[in-house]
Nucleic acid binder design. Structure first.
Lengths: 345, 345
DNA sequence: TTTAGCACTCTCCTCAAGAGAGTGCTAATT
DNA sequence: AATTAGCACTCTCTTGAGGAGAGTGCTAAA
């Protein structure tokens, strides 16, 4: 990342600010006029040419103003952005909404997605938190239909998983209940590997059930199995850069956002720690569907125990300072709620 | 609904067919040329003028051909459409996909939505089946955090509902298990009203829990509580009528489809019986968001016991015969699966 | 190092002209 | 009485030319 002079830094900041506001390329005259610099437009032009050379700016066509490149945004976010936090009145209002709602996790996550989307005026994503190491809490086995068994598994932390399976032979409810009672006694607060080790103590039928149980527990410790709440995707359509291009294409891309995000979440986010905010600009070369978007992500939850992901998705020219502040605030709020209400003591 | 002469019926059929194919207004010459009628275009023009007068056709502008009105489509669907069924090879392929997949209900429903979307080349909707009268099967109560209780309720048929609540006082796990055991013994195969009547036999804490239980059971007997699978919505964007109009608006409307459909399902579908196919054209005056769409819906499941809804959503000029056949076929398939695999004997 | 000046490039808007498609009406034909 | 040929008319859509506007790069002067 090539160094910029102080004056160039100021110019980059101004261009980002202006372009974020207007969605238009920014010309040398505009810069002088808007910000009252003590320089002529010709000087600015020279600087702009240099910064274009460095790869931080580009021109949509030869006689247009400049817009930041991905590289330009990246420099801006790393070195120049000023994080703004929400006004405390807004923060209070939002907190209230969460604490008033007694409707449980599902509702909180929806609310979080909605708050993020509204505050940032763009799309938002929130994934349900899940245990990082799945700990067994309770198992229920129910006979559903001849040889089909419904397994309901509750993990420490309150996560519930269900599965219907068959072990080939019909078992009556009594047998199943006995099996469940035994497993409940053996597995309390245990992890999947430990439970897998109980194998030897069981008979044939018990092993089959144990296999399913272990499979289910492992699955839940992988990623994005739970609900994913997406909100405000249609807000992206109001952005001029997407309204411009050919109709179908741009909107189609929004519908393809979902699978791309799932992929992105499962690959990127696990690495980061709770609290750290990641900014992904223009798909970072990896996700071509996100070429025109920027994504701000963070994890929330309780370190080492339970965590989920949340963030906002907007056009590259999003107001980064504000978006980062919002994401951080909502994630702290959710972390607090999750800590207070879902964790075992 | 005004009567049409036989010749007018033929003309309406031809216009619908041609307009479905080309998405363009159909003119008098086109009709003669395409279908080799033994009439001149002038005669056709006279007929078209008459049918326009009757309200079955309209002109986008004075010198354009005709397209069917909502009324026209309605007449066509009620009197003229020929239901086509899928070729048996296709039917077999699809059946196979379902029967091969041992992955359970969730997967079937996704598959159904995907099949509907692909076959009809438009959007599809499938709702999870739910019990029409909720029957208690099993209850589990778990202490999650000081005074918070996790309730897991299993209904006859395998439906699972969960809820976290507090009854104000802290209860230990032992107490909860005793309560659950008692309720399990009392409530097996019973309905919500019966269970509500047990009230008097319980102490204070038991009543609170019973209240929650009854609430949850009633909730599940209302509509659209479960998952709703939407597929192929982006396919609608490729339709010329939506690609044409201003960019943002038309795509935005697709994002607003979801809540509208929820509303529509909860209001319309309950009335109909399993097997009957409903065709809603142009929102039927009630749902302005659906003004340009037609929806073909049916219920599937087991009469009186468990049922869900499925259908396709396409532009008004969708191939009705084919769409109705597809919807009917998939619904029969799902009904069969649900019957075989989820119902208690 | 900065600035004024200028030729040049590219986009976007507007407007007019013309092609094309289809209509409705009238008068003639079957 | 029903059908048809003929024709003037209307409306949309495409194309291309012209001009305004915005912004640039370069040169030469301050």
């Amino acid at each position: 990342m090539k160094a910029l002079t102080d004056r160039q830094k100021i110019l980059l900041t101004l261009i980002v600010r202006e372009h974020t506001r207007t969605a238009q390329p920014v010309g040398s005259k505009t810069i002088v006029a808007q910000f009252g610099l003590k320089l002529s437009s010709a000087t600015i032009r020279n600087e702009l040419a240099a910064m274009t050379e460095l790869g931080y700016l580009r021109q949509p066509h030869t006689s247009a103003g400049r817009i930041p490149t991905e590289e330009g945004y990246r420099y801006f976010v790393s070195n120049l952005v000023q994080q703004t936090s929400l006004p405390s009145s807004t923060r209070n209002t939002i907190s209230h909404q969460f604490y008033q709602s007694q409707q449980g996790l599902d509702h909180w996550l929806k609310l979080a997605a909605s708050v993020l989307a509204n505050q940032s005026q763009s799309a938002s994503i929130v994934t349900a938190p899940h245990s990082q190491r799945a700990l067994f809490k309770h198992l229920e086995l129910l006979s559903v239909h001849s040889d089909r068994i419904l397994m309901v598994l509750v993990l420490v932390g309150g996560e519930i998983r269900q599965r219907i399976f068959s072990i080939g032979e019909a078992l009556n409810q009594e047998t199943l209940s006995r099996q469940a009672a035994m497993l409940n006694a053996l597995c309390m607060n245990k992890t999947a590997p430990f439970i897998a080790g109980l194998d030897e103590q069981l008979d044939e039928g018990g092993r089959r059930i144990l296999g399913m149980l272990v499979e289910e527990m492992n699955e839940s410790s992988h990623l994005v199995t739970g609900q994913v709440y997406l909100d405000g995707v249609q807000k992206l359509l109001t952005e001029p850069e997407f309204a411009e291009s050919e109709n179908a294409r741009s909107a189609m891309r929004l519908f393809e956002l979902r699978p791309t995000l799932d992929d992105l979440l499962s690959r990127t986010v696990l690495k980061s720690a709770i609290g750290g905010v990641q900014v992904l600009i223009g798909g970072e070369g990896q996700w071509s569907e996100l070429r025109d978007f920027s994504i701000i992500l963070t994890r929330y939850g309780v370190p080492e125990q339970i965590s989920g992901t949340l963030g906002v998705i907007g056009p590259m020219r999003m107001p980064y300072g504000h978006a980062i502040g919002t994401v951080r605030f909502v994630s702290e709020l959710l972390s607090e709620l999750v800590t207070n209400h879902l964790i075992e003591e």
